[in-house]
């Protein structure tokens, strides 16, 4: 009996050690891959159409918000649309005049300033949440600021977006404030940067588009003043832009009907400025507005 137990014990121990060894080698082989079957991409040989955009946001953000729109246009037209960024607002105008881009997302201010001289034509403008083709420039402050209105801005540090943007110029054109009323004024490339610097307390106030300010309302940004409705930033073509391309862009973007589920889903990843659809734009719409509140 004792021999049986010893034999059984030794067999068990041997089996245990053998299993442990096999288990060890199995566990130490950590080979792994979560690769799925790759999708073969079809070579697209359609003509490429470049679409300019003023540098209102950082390049990364521009691609995030504008590339889906390019993909939509590529899907709806016989062209492949690609974004072409620029360092400045003015560079986009030059790209249009040189024919490097067939169309562009321009700012309202720079369009009003240049459309006649540069033979530009607005074709579409985005709608806001109310379904109107306007936006507002707003004066923002940090959460602990004592600024309550225009009167409190004197001798304060002011942050502004690109000097070619409407928001950077509206304050001095449509209110009684002058540049000399401020302690300091600084321009930044992007609207978002203005918000960041105000939040950090580097500046007492800043001016940005209402949509940008709303985006950061949760972070403590307060709006103390806003402009009168400003015509929305237009999509612009040059007079030399092939009309079929212009027509294709207009048709594709006006086709968006947000009452249909497919379009609602489509615009979800687009820049917030374009999520409410488009409406045709005309030069007569782009006259500088007056006043604010």
């Amino acid at each position: 009996m004792r021999k049986t137990f010893i034999f059984f014990g030794l067999s068990l121990a041997g089996f245990f050690i053998l299993s442990l060894s096999l288990l060890y080698s199995g566990f130490m082989d950590i080979s792994f891959s979560n690769a799925e079957t790759a999708v073969t991409q079809i070579q697209d040989k359609r003509p490429v159409v470049y679409f300019g955009v003023v540098s209102r946001y950082s390049p990364h953000l521009l691609y995030e918000g504008y590339q889906p729109l390019m993909d939509y246009l590529s899907g709806e037209t016989p062209y492949r649309f690609r974004l072409r960024l620029s360092r400045t607002y003015r560079e986009t105008i030059e790209q249009l005049t040189r024919g490097e881009v067939a169309a562009a997302f321009l700012g309202t201010y720079i369009y009003i300033q240049n459309h006649q001289e540069k033979n530009l034509r607005c074709i579409l403008k985005p709608l806001n949440k109310q379904g109107l083709p306007f936006f507002n420039s707003v004066i923002i402050t940090g959460p602990n600021s004592r600024i309550r209105g225009l009167a409190d801005l004197k001798e304060k540090r002011l942050a502004l977006p690109s000097p070619y943007s409407y928001s950077a110029n509206w304050l001095f054109k449509e209110t009684n404030l002058n540049r000399s009323d401020f302690d300091s004024i600084r321009y930044f490339d992007f609207h978002n940067t203005v918000v960041y610097r105000v939040l950090k307390g580097d500046f007492d106030a800043g001016v940005v588009k209402d949509r940008v300010a709303e985006k950061f309302s949760g972070a403590g940004i307060r709006i103390v003043y806003q402009s009168a409705p400003i015509p929305a930033s237009p999509i612009v073509v040059h007079k030399n832009t092939p009309p079929e391309i212009t027509r294709a862009i207009i048709n594709a973007l006006l086709k968006i009907n947000l009452r249909q589920k497919q379009y609602k889903k489509l615009v979800q990843n687009w820049d917030a400025e374009f999520q409410n659809g488009f409406t045709p734009a005309f030069d007569k719409d782009y006259i500088a507005p007056k006043g604010g509140k």
């Binding site: 080979s31 792994f32 979560n34 690769a35 691609y63 995030e64 504008y66 590339q67 889906p68 390019m70």
Partner: peptide, 27 residues
């Protein structure tokens, strides 16, 4: 999506490799 693999490279030994697709707005 990122594709990650763990494998034994003949020269580099065991490595964990991630192939991260660089995309912005679908591009």
């Amino acid at each position: 999506k990122p594709v990650t693999a763990i494998f034994k490279h003949p020269d580099l030994g065991w490595i964990i490799e991630t192939n991260f697709p660089l995309r912005t707005g679908g591009k």
